[in-house]
Design a protein around this nucleic acid. Sequence first.
DNA 1: TTCAGTAGTTCTGAATATATGAACAATGGA
DNA 2: TCCATTGTTCATATATTCAGAACTACTGAA
Lengths: 125, 125
Amino acid sequence: MKPLIHPAIEDVPLAAILHALADPVRVALFAEIVAQDCPRSCSRLVSVLDAPIPKSTLSQHLRILREAGLIRGERHGVEMRNASRCPEIETHYPGLLTSIVGAHEIQMDAGKKRASRLARKAARA
Amino acid sequence: MKPLIHPAIEDVPLAAILHALADPVRVALFAEIVAQDCPRSCSRLVSVLDAPIPKSTLSQHLRILREAGLIRGERHGVEMRNASRCPEIETHYPGLLTSIVGAHEIQMDAGKKRASRLARKAARA
DNA sequence: TTCAGTAGTTCTGAATATATGAACAATGGA
DNA sequence: TCCATTGTTCATATATTCAGAACTACTGAA
């Protein structure tokens, strides 16, 4: 089992941070980790996703978030706990993560509204 | 010559916006377009990049920015003028682009400082 | 009108990245 | 020890991206 990589924020190119969050699954995972104050295990994280994903894929996604400096992972026995590194990043790139997570929530809300509009329309027909 | 695609912001997934900006060349292009108040032609844009890139690559990068709703392109005679769509996006995702462009500038400054530190070190040796 | 030059675009194959099933490693009980 | 649980790594099929070559579209000059 290879040791986990946690780069210093100043060593992470902005492109890597944006790339890590430029994936619907990964923003959702990150937003959940940020929202909860206690670290989340991988298996608990899957449950917040719309569609279930294979665990190998989840593992890769979390590695990308980790190596982009966005989360910190710690192995506790058999499970892996994932915590956000927001405060560190906030000092280096003020407002960046807040606005991205905010945009993600705006998008989720818009999606819900669209879905319920479609549902009402279907119910009338 | 295919017509240019300019999607409505609400139809662009957040992932597409972040993906478009998750590339060093594309953020640099976008930051330049945002910084200038008058639209920039493709050829003028190349000059702001550190390394010159082939025009086919530039064309693809600008298409990605366009289809992510970030810029608006207009053909004027033989040239293509690229303008930012920041105001529209700002109303939909407040603060998003400001903080990303801001982060890009922070990164550029850090890069410059690092370079001049290395230069001084080399001069001493 | 034809030609040459300029500014971008599209096509295409090679290089690169991503997703996932299968095999594997690590830990904690029974 | 054996098994269940959690997650990682490997192999490979699939998808994306880059950049050279060929192309389109427009302009001005002859």
